[in-house]
């Protein structure tokens, strides 16, 4: 896990640098991402929000090294990413396709660990813990197909957690679970960065969730996407579903992000966060 864990000098853990992506299809060229630049520092939680089709999945796939950008580059601790880096995990938006139907739930979660040469018993241990933490105790032996969509999504989250990545990328990870489970999962994810020193980048449709989870929210414009604004979220830690969400600053930040998503501004003024806080 050297690639992610060796931050050098002043480099942020992850830097997206003037990323652009144009898909070439038989129907013609399609510019999905025009110009996206942002930094993620070690230990931060950063959310990417934007309208549907804004290129969020495209962006995350570029960050994960699965897709080469048309221009721009991704730097991990200052080192350009050319393929999926070691120690990074991705929770796919299309979770059901990313689970292997011929493996049990436990088999799916241990597969990346076994590939990383984690001994069988330890892998099973870590997998069981991760599954329990997403509320799937006792489901280890079932096949993914025997679970509901929301449970499958949690298996795919558990797989990423058991992997204990330094960089956790998640594409709408809580989209298919009920509101209660969603809050549980949000509260599960937050302590992870202290526990494992994880850095988390997550894509979400849910503005409340973005503000609640994040240190910063990257707001994308409608496609072809650019960064409309990067909103700092200086809410105190630890966050709590009741206290944080009742905090008047939470409401103001939420409002601000919502406005940005609905009516994107050309560029984010540097003073965004001060203005909100001093209002």
């Amino acid at each position: 896990m050297t690639a992610v864990s060796a931050p050098t000098g002043q480099w942020p853990l992850l830097r997206a640098e003037t990323l652009a992506k144009t898909y070439h299809t038989p129907a013609g060229a399609h510019e999905a991402v025009r110009d996206v630049t942002f930094d993620v520092h070690a230990g931060e939680v950063v959310s990417i929000v934007g309208p549907s089709g804004a290129g969020k999945t495209t962006l995350l796939r570029i960050l994960a090294g699965l897709l080469a950008p048309t221009s721009g580059r991704v730097l991990l601790s200052g080192v350009p990413v050319e393929g999926p880096p070691q120690g990074a995990a991705l929770v796919f938006q299309d979770y059901s396709r990313s689970l292997l139907p011929w493996l049990s739930v436990l088999g799916n979660v241990t597969l990346p660990l076994r590939s990383a040469r984690v001994p069988r018993a330890e892998a099973a241990d870590r997998a069981r813990q991760a599954l329990a933490s997403v509320g799937l105790e006792g489901k280890e032996k079932l096949r993914p197909r025997e679970l509901s969509g929301g449970m499958q999504q949690r298996v795919s989250i558990a797989r990423a957690l058991a992997y204990q990545p330094r960089l956790l990328l998640m594409d709408e990870p809580f989209a298919s679970v009920d509101a209660q489970t969603r809050m549980d999962l949000e509260d599960l994810v937050l302590p992870l960065r202290e526990q494992y020193g994880m850095t988390i980048v997550t894509v979400t449709h849910d503005i409340d969730e973005a503000v609640y989870l994040s240190d910063r929210v990257v707001v994308l414009s409608p496609p072809p996407s650019t960064v409309s604004a990067v909103v700092d979220i200086p809410l105190p830690a630890p966050r709590s579903q009741t206290a944080t969400k009742e905090d008047p600053r939470f409401g103001r930040l939420r409002h601000r992000v919502l406005d940005l998503v609905r009516r994107p501004e050309p560029a984010a003024p540097a003073t965004t966060q001060e203005r909100i806080l001093n209002r």
Binding site: R61, L90, F92, S98, S115
Partner: peptide, 26 residues
């Protein structure tokens, strides 16, 4: 095979014989 399986193997570095036997052949 579904390209999603290729992505999965790439991200989680499932390679070699394990990839063949556990992901590709099934």
């Amino acid at each position: 095979a579904d390209p999603a399986l290729g992505d999965l193997s790439a991200v989680y570095r499932i390679g070699g014989l394990r990839r063949l036997l556990v992901v590709q052949l099934p």
